[in-house]
């Protein structure tokens, strides 16, 4: 897998912002479901020029919900919406390394 195919987007949320503030910063990404830890490590190191010390991954389960405002009537009323499963990676970098994409924590 090419490193640039691995990382899909940075996850910038309250939790991930908090983790950036750790002594050794942790950054969260959505990654390709097929990617493994070593591929993620390589991808982050290439893309952001940092040294990765640890990679945690978690597969976020697919979810289903119903849209009560759907215009479909009858037996299939309240259209079913599925979201696919996706893989989240939390990458810890060497103390002192930073990824500017997440910078600017107040």
């Amino acid at each position: 897998m090419h490193p640039y195919e691995v990382l899909k987007r940075p996850l910038i949320t309250e939790k991930s912002q908090w983790q950036v503030g750790y002594e050794a910063s942790q950054y969260a990404f959505e990654v390709d479901v097929r990617a493994n830890k070593s591929q993620i490590k390589e991808a982050v190191e290439v893309a952001f020029d940092v040294t990765v010390t640890r990679v945690n991954v978690i597969v976020m389960p697919p979810k289903r919900r119903r849209n009560p405002r759907s215009r479909i009537t009858g037996a299939g009323a309240a259209q079913l919406i599925r979201s696919p499963k996706w893989k989240k990676a939390i990458v810890q970098v060497k103390t002192g390394d930073r990824i500017p994409l997440f910078e600017g924590v107040a």
């Binding site: 996850l11 910038i12 949320t13 309250e14 912002q17 600017g104 107040a106």
Partner: peptide
């Protein structure tokens, strides 16, 4: 003041990934 503004603005509009009013300045 910047933090105050960020707090105020992120209360007025939803920033995905953050509870209302909790988004930091740069976001």
């Amino acid at each position: 003041a910047r933090r105050e503004v960020a707090r105020k603005l992120s209360k007025q509009m939803r920033v995905p990934g953050f509870r209302p009013g909790m988004a930091p300045v740069n976001v």
